[in-house]
Nucleic acid binder design. Structure first.
Length: 419
DNA sequence: TCTGGGGTCCTAGGACCC
DNA sequence: TCTGGGGTCCTAGGACCC
């Protein structure tokens, strides 16, 4: 029987900051979301101070200052690059790997001997630490859901950071300790419903009849129960092109003019289109939306969005910008204090399917232009060339005053070593 | 003053068809 | 007044994940 290993980087964003700044070792660190809004990552030391995940930063700022917490704006360029390094390291150990998120991957092993597996996992952990500087934890089990649980235990209870769930007796005890809301796929709403049925732990969920649970909930719940029983229902999945691409940001300050909104939306489109072309797709439509603050703002709330379909599926940034601009004009109402705008590229398909249109001169020229823009930006750094429509002053841009250098992706921000 | 962003999957319900 | 049944496709919204 195969074994799933879930590899998860410990406190990923906080650990990335630490790799290039050893003074942060054993110090509390928090990393903030875009616009320095919420806490999205904490080192163990910061967790011990009681700073919760997802908390609005302004509520914890005083405590952070008083306790000497090192606070960072998020630096996705750095985290994305570090993630790639971890994944490349992991690839060496299994041919069957699924990158699940920026800091997690499943590996599948056929090795039946549990001791061998645990040894291998320990070896992987040491290697990744050596090659990337990042600490990871590994959970081993016969299903993905159980591997998640095992990883949770490895991280919290096991100093060596590796835990195997192959032993049945151990499973009973550990699942009985685990609150049901900690199970992968059980969120706030579902755990509340489960609690009402008297199901409070992972073990109690596991011991329910799967088909009964399907009737009461849905097919997803049935799979979760089976997975907890060691029956694998969630296979390894190949990397698929995304079905939609979202680009949105809260503004650094309130925006009131159409011109500023146009700049912001154009900028989001430029970023989304880079990702669209990276995965060799074209989009058939774009959804554009704007809204005022969602939180206790005394001014009148307003939110609106609309979809535009293109004449032909496209990955041409300027063409999409033009369409979005027309759409935005219909959404915009003067007099409101806008806080956020966003776009979603939808109905994506492979760009090779639209090749018959390549005979059109316009399409050919646009593809060549986009290719050149991407080439220059890949070679010389992001935003080396950009569309005028994205604006230059960009006074709507988000706050990120506490950002660390992009140590690994920008020549001007390399680590300095001093004797 | 200050509350993130980017994804996926499932289901219910409506429209439409025979 | 009476007014089937089954299928498909699409979309909005909900729930979840990191």
């Amino acid at each position: 029987m195969s074994t799933y290993a879930l590899v998860d980087c410990n406190n990923f964003f906080a650990s990335c900051e630490r790799v290039f700044n050893p003074k942060l070792e054993n110090k509390p660190i928090v990393v903030l979301s875009n616009n320095d809004g919420c806490v999205v990552a904490r080192s163990n030391e910061a967790k011990l101070l009681g700073i919760p995940m997802g908390a609005p930063y302004y509520q914890w700022q005083t405590l952070c200052e008083r306790q000497g917490v090192h606070v960072f704006s998020s630096n996705y360029e750095l985290y994305g690059d570090m993630s790639q390094r971890v994944m490349m390291s992991l690839e060496r150990f299994s041919e069957n790997m699924e990158i699940y998120s920026i800091d997690e991957a499943f590996l599948l092993f056929d090795e039946p001997n549990e001791k061998q597996l645990t040894w291998l996992a320990t070896h992987i952990r040491q290697s990744v630490k050596k090659w990337t500087g990042l600490p990871i934890s590994i959970g081993l089990a016969s299903t993905k859901t159980l591997a998640k649980v095992a990883n949770h235990i490895a991280k919290k209870q096991i100093e060596e950071g590796v835990f195997s769930f192959k032993h049945q007796g151990l499973q009973d005890a550990k699942l009985a300790q685990l609150p049901v809301e900690e199970v992968w796929g059980i969120g706030r709403k579902l755990s509340k419903r489960l609690n009402q049925l008297g199901i409070c732990t992972a073990k109690e969920l596991r011991d329910r009849d799967p088909s009964e649970m399907r009737l009461q909930f849905n097919v997803v719940m049935e799979k979760i129960v089976n997975e907890l029983r060691g029956i694998s229902c969630l296979p390894m999945e190949a990397l698929q092109p995304r079905q939609q691409i979202i680009s949105s940001r809260s503004f650094g300050r309130v925006v009131t003019t159409l011109a500023d909104l146009e700049e912001a939306v154009s900028h989001y489109i430029a970023k989304a289109c880079v990702r669209l072309r990276e995965q060799k797709s074209v989009a058939a439509e774009i959804y554009v939306y704007i809204h005022t603050s969602l939180f206790n703002d005394t001014s009148t709330p307003y939110c609106n969005g609309n979809t535009v379909r293109f004449a032909l599926p496209t990955a041409d940034t300027s063409l999409i910008m033009q369409e979005a601009k027309k759409c935005l004009a219909t959404l915009y109402k003067p007099g409101y204090r806008y806080k956020k705008a966003g776009i979603i590229l939808r109905d994506l398909s492979s760009d090779t399917k639209t090749q018959q249109d390549m005979f059109a001169t316009n399409t050919k020229r646009s593809a060549a232009l986009m290719e050149t823009v991407d080439l220059i930006n890949n070679r010389d750094g992001r935003n080396s060339v950009f569309f005028c429509a994205e604006g230059i002053a960009r006074n709507w841009q988000m706050k990120c005053g506490k950002q660390s250098p992009r140590y690994t992706t920008n020549w001007r921000e390399l680590v300095e070593a001093r004797c």
